[in-house]
């Protein structure tokens, strides 16, 4: 028995050949990805010009330049594109460096991200790491609770017809209520009984993340076919043995697919949970404060921080999944 069949990619190629193959494979993926990112950034820069045109032209006028049309009231009714075309010089030169642009340029967001993470102590009130941690802790707490709840509900649904008929419809209904509507209620209700801080946000996180876990886990626990179940019956296996030795291991690939959706939903839940209270800490608070004071660069950098955080969380789960499934022999 050889471990690599001859038909496998890279089989029969020496070590250096295999490295070259890997590079070619990775290069084959990286080049298109980079191209798309570059195109998006270019598009973003172009979009900055008309989006910020009114402000650019106003600044030019204040510094004594000639602008058309001269009347501010007339300009207000014009679109950004038309205004940029009438005043190409000022529109272009001032589009990427405003204090409070309608649409900040990519490098402004990048600089703000850098300054508010690497550029200051993580304990500072302006540090995104500080705010990110506040949100992350609520996310993780909510995710853990939501996952546990989701798994428990799924186990109940699979083993009890009554639960299947009674719980599933409510789980579905719960997800049709907009989180924006229910988040303030949860926070107000919990506040009135003296609970605030991390917990209400974690509740909203759990509320958003339990559902994908329930759906995925129910499907996973039901994935063994009739033959595999019959096999255990021929051994006289108990319900518990069937669960631990067949249903649970069979459900793991489904669980991980759900966990990836669930953790992203958890993060959204935590951020949404920070909005209605006028919280002063957390990524949601940064978003809120940013929009309150028109600090668009701050809003965008908080948005990117949230996106990066979500990507990291999903990547961590994907890593655990790969490791676990490979150890179980499910990934080749």
């Amino acid at each position: 028995m050889t471990d690599t069949p001859l038909s496998a990619p890279g089989a029969g190629v020496g070590r250096s050949g295999r490295v070259a193959l890997w590079l070619r494979g990775a290069g084959g993926r990286i080049v298109p990805v980079l191209t798309v990112i570059a195109a998006l950034i270019a598009l973003w820069y172009v979009a900055c010009i008309p989006m910020n045109a009114h402000q650019s032209v106003l600044l030019a006028e204040r510094s004594g330049a000639e602008v058309t049309p001269a009347a501010a009231s007339e300009r207000r009714n014009m679109g950004g594109i038309a205004l940029s075309l009438r005043n190409p010089g000022p529109a272009l030169s001032a589009a990427f460096a405003q204090d409070r642009p309608v649409l900040p340029a990519p490098h402004q967001v990048a600089v703000e991200l850098w300054d508010s993470t690497a550029g200051m102590r993580p304990t500072s009130k302006r540090s995104l790491i500080f705010h990110g941690w506040i949100t992350l802790s609520a996310t993780l707490a909510g995710f853990a609770v939501g996952t546990a709840l989701g798994i428990l509900l799924a186990v109940g649904i699979v083993h009890s017809r009554v639960m299947d008929m009674s719980v599933m419809p409510w789980a579905i209904v719960s997800q049709t209520i907009p989180i924006i509507a229910i988040a303030p209620m949860i926070i107000v209700v919990l506040y009135s009984v003296g609970v605030q801080g991390l917990l209400p946000k974690a509740v909203i996180s759990a509320y958003l993340s339990f559902f994908p876990v329930v759906v995925g886990m129910v499907k996973g626990l039901r994935s063994p076919d009739a033959m595999q179940l019959d096999l255990l019956r021929t051994y006289g296996a108990t319900g518990g043995q069937t669960f631990w030795k067949l249903r649970l291991p069979a459900s793991l690939p489904y669980l991980f697919a759900s966990l990836k959706i669930g953790v992203a939903a958890s993060l959204i839940g935590a951020i949404v949970g920070e909005l209605p209270t006028g919280a002063v800490r957390g990524l949601g608070a940064r978003l809120l404060a940013g929009s309150y004071y028109g600090q668009t660069v701050q809003i965008w950098s908080a948005l990117f921080a949230a996106a990066i955080l979500a990507a990291v969380l999903v990547a961590i789960i994907a890593g655990i999944e790969r490791m676990l499934l490979r150890r179980m022999g499910l990934a080749r």
Binding site: L231, L232, Y235, G329
Partner: peptide, 29 residues
């Protein structure tokens, strides 16, 4: 446990090794 049953498809559990699959009934019993 009066009999062993061999189904038409092998139906081995993919997350168990061959040894692990043969252990399955032994674990249960």
């Amino acid at each position: 446990r009066a009999y062993g049953y061999v189904f038409q498809a092998a139906g081995l559990y993919p997350w168990r090794t061959i040894g692990g699959n043969i252990r399955l009934p032994l674990e249960i019993m």
